[in-house]
């Protein structure tokens, strides 16, 4: 099964941030948009079409799931009644991507440290 998770790697920056945004719990499209911007310190500012293309692809890949949300639960008027959650596979892929990046960073730090000395 691990091979299946690895087949999703490496994640693009946008995908990684979207999955990361959904890690704490369900979110609407607009909330994801804002959260991605916040998580990336404003460096990744997604347009609506880019966001939904990514969400649609992630739905097809089974990394996220779409759920109907109670309109009364909605964060505000005009917000769509559909929310997105991370699937089990999505969570494992996100963890695998994080581990992969950690290994990359560790390797880079080690090499850069060696170069300095």
């Amino acid at each position: 099964m691990q091979t299946n998770y690895l087949s999703h790697l490496p994640l693009t920056e946008t995908t990684f941030y979207i999955l990361l945004s959904l890690a704490p719990g369900k979110k609407h499209g607009y909330a994801i948009l804002k959260d991605v911007q916040a998580l990336s310190n404003g460096e990744v500012s997604l347009s609506t079409s880019t966001l939904y293309s990514a969400l649609s692809r992630l739905l097809d890949q089974g990394l996220i799931e779409r759920i109907s949300d109670d309109p009364e639960n909605s964060a505000g008027p005009g917000l769509p009644r559909k929310a997105y959650v991370l699937s089990d596979v999505g969570r494992r892929v996100l963890k695998a991507a994080t581990n992969r990046m950690q290994a990359l960073v560790a390797a880079a730090r080690l090499r850069l440290g060696e170069e300095r000395t």
């Binding site: 499209g29 607009y30 609506t48 939904y52 649609s56 005009g78 917000l79 769509p80 559909k82």
Partner: peptide, 17 residues
């Protein structure tokens, strides 16, 4: 098919943005 699935949400998120 994409419109059926996402157009409503796209429009709502665009309006909010």
């Amino acid at each position: 098919a994409y419109r059926v699935e996402h157009a409503e949400e796209l429009q709502a998120v665009f309006n909010l943005t």
